Simulated scan of single mutants.
Amino acid sequence: MSRVDKRSRRAAGRTSATEPVPVPVAGSDCPQLVEERDWAQLLPDLVCKIADDLLSDDVTEYIRLRAVCKPWRNSTSVPSTLDPRFFPRQWLLIAEEKLRRDGKPERFVNVRTGATLRICLPTPKEYTYHCNAEGLLVLCHSLTDTVCLLNPLTMAFTDLPMMSTAAGVVTDIDNLGRPRSNPTVVLSLNSRMHTAIVCALPGDSLWRAVDMSCADDIECELPAIRGGLAVQGRFFVPNRAGDVLEVEVRPQPRLTYVARQAGDEAESGLNERSYLVPSGNDVGARMLLLRTWGPGNIHYEVFMVDLGNRRLTPHEMGGTDTTVFLPSVTLRSSAFPNVVVANIAYLKGHMRSLMQGLYI
Rank of each mutant, 00 (worst) to 15 (best):
L354S: 00
R100F: 02
S334Y: 05
A209Y: 02
V4P: 00
A200C: 13
S279N: 05
D45V: 15
C214Y: 02
N297D: 11
V109W: 02
T256C: 13
V138I: 13
G177I: 05
F108P: 04
T158Y: 06
Q252W: 09
E267G: 12
L121M: 12
F87E: 00
E301H: 10
R273Y: 04
R226Y: 08
A215M: 14
V305H: 00
L121E: 08
A11E: 10
P337A: 09
L43K: 05
V341Y: 11
A285K: 14
L358W: 08
V25C: 12
L139Y: 07
V68E: 07
L276P: 00
G103T: 13
R286E: 15
G168M: 02
D306H: 13
N182S: 09
A224F: 03
Y127K: 13
I298K: 15
L54K: 09
V341E: 13
P88M: 07
I50K: 08
K70C: 12
G280A: 07
T158V: 15
G233K: 00
A241D: 00
H130N: 12
L149I: 03
E35F: 12
A215Q: 14
P251R: 15
V277D: 03
R14F: 14
Y359P: 01
S188W: 07
E267V: 11
G103Y: 09
S80A: 15
N190T: 10
S334D: 06
A51M: 12
N132A: 04
S164A: 05
V34F: 12
L150F: 10
R286C: 13
V59R: 03
N190L: 06
S8E: 04
V302M: 10
S8T: 14
H350P: 01
C120I: 11
C140N: 10
F157P: 03
D145F: 10
L65Q: 03
M355E: 01
R118V: 00
L150T: 08
P79S: 04
F157R: 15
A12K: 14
R250N: 11
M155P: 02
V186W: 01
K49N: 04
R250D: 13
P314F: 14
C48P: 02
I173L: 06
I298R: 15
G269H: 08
T313P: 02
H315G: 01
H194G: 05
L33M: 14
P88A: 05
A17M: 12
N309Q: 12
L160W: 02
F303K: 01
F87A: 02
A262T: 14
P31F: 07
D321F: 09
A230M: 02
C148E: 10
V4H: 12
G308E: 15
V21T: 14
V198E: 05
Y62C: 09
D321Y: 10
E265V: 10
I218F: 06
R64G: 05
V111G: 02
R14S: 13
A335N: 08
G203T: 08
L43Y: 03
A224H: 00
L137M: 15
E126M: 05
A266P: 04
I218V: 15
G263L: 08
V237D: 01
L290K: 03
S80N: 06
V169P: 03
A200G: 08
S8M: 06
V169C: 09
L99I: 11
I63R: 06
F157W: 14
F157S: 06
I298G: 12
D29P: 00
V138Y: 01
A345T: 10
S181I: 03
P327Q: 02
D45P: 09
